[in-house]
């Protein structure tokens, strides 16, 4: 009898802790937004919110992939390089081979998929540690991107190439008396729409499908999952393919925004992606994590950067602050788990 009541008590506190942590991350996000809107009048405007959302897309898209990989207990260091390679492939296909833009972009995305598949095979079949396998891919993908372009940016891609990164939906525009267009609502940029759709889709996959259940099971106890009939290799490989594909998509979006393919784009993005996942409560040991948490983590980083910029704080100081935020959030997470 006492045993049961004890169980109930601890279950309740466990759930409370979980809610608390979610609110803690979300709460710090709200506090950040509040502080920045006080210190800078331009911060809390429709335009700036859209700018932040746009800036967050790349971290968030990569973070979604990173979340799935980290839940299985792995890590993907290659996404920053893979996105550069994907963007370069898309641009070269369009410019040098005259492919239509959608086909070029598809090729870019599939390049990411292929890189993710190679990562997965190296980890599950060659039994390389994820850190090493994706470190290798990080160097290789970057090298190929630089090799293809001769380390030069690919420009002159045409307006159509810029559509994905710069277009938006629900843009409200009236033509004023002076003949100039008057933008009353900037619209929601396509990348933001993509981010939201993909976040919901992956969250659905993780929470509501067999595959998602298997991903958590592999990360929680790969041996037990395997002995329960889960194809651990296939599930693991899937997460790397997802991560690579999202990196490919991110690459296309980024290059499209600039209407230029930069082989040096995305250096260090893998660490932003991992940071957003970690701030959002994803455990590097595996088995634990949510897309909503990672989305919050991505926005924490995005808002910090944007707000600090608007307050004229140097890029160097920004790095220091973001570094501290990562240390503090993970430390709080550790404290929570130790109890």
């Amino acid at each position: 009898m006492t045993n049961t009541t004890e169980l109930k008590k601890s279950a309740l506190t466990d759930r409370q802790k979980d809610i608390l942590q979610k609110f803690a991350a979300l709460g710090s996000l709200v506090v950040l937004a509040f502080i920045f809107s006080l210190t800078s009048s331009a911060f809390f405007s429709v335009n700036n919110v859209m700018t932040i959302a746009l800036q967050v897309t790349s971290i968030a898209l990569l973070g979604i992939g990173a979340t799935c990989v980290i839940i299985t207990g792995g890590i993907d260091l290659s996404v920053g390089s893979v996105l550069a390679l994907a963007g370069v492939i898309a641009a070269v296909a369009v410019k040098d081979y005259g492919a239509p833009v959608p086909l070029g972009m598809l090729l870019g995305i599939l390049t990411g998929t292929a890189c993710g598949w190679v990562n997965g095979v190296c980890i599950t079949k060659l039994k390389l540690p994820p850190f090493i396998a994706t470190l290798g891919m990080m160097l290789i993908a970057r090298g190929v991107a630089l090799q293809i372009t001769g380390a030069r940016a690919v420009s002159g891609l045409g307006d159509a190439f810029g559509e994905l990164g710069n277009g938006s939906i629900m843009k409200i525009m009236t033509v004023g008396d002076d003949g100039f267009p008057n933008v009353s609502f900037p619209g929601i940029p396509y990348p933001v729409v993509l981010m939201v759709v993909i976040a919901f889709a992956v969250a659905f996959m993780l929470n509501r499908t067999i595959l998602g259940r298997y991903i958590y099971a592999v990360g929680s106890n790969a041996e037990a999952a395997s002995l329960s009939g889960v194809n651990v290799a296939r599930v693991t490989t899937f997460t790397y393919i997802l991560s690579g594909t999202l990196a490919g998509l991110t690459g296309c979006v980024l290059m499209s925004r600039l209407v230029t393919a930069q082989p040096n784009e995305g250096v260090g993005y893998e660490l932003d992606a991992i940071a957003s996942a970690v701030i959002g409560g994803v455990s590097l040991i595996g088995g634990v994590g949510t897309i909503s948490g990672t989305a919050i983590g991505a926005f924490v980083i995005g808002i910090l950067r944007n707000g600090l910029n608007m307050n004229g704080i140097s890029a160097f100081a920004q790095q220091i602050i973001i570094g501290l935020v990562i240390l503090i959030t993970v430390w709080i997470d550790q404290l929570r788990n130790r109890q």
Binding site: Y216, A217, S220, N221, A224, A225, L227, G287
Partner: peptide, 9 residues
């Protein structure tokens, strides 16, 4: 613990 259950689930 090591082979039978995903104890955090």
């Amino acid at each position: 613990k090591s082979q039978g259950l995903a104890i955090r689930m």
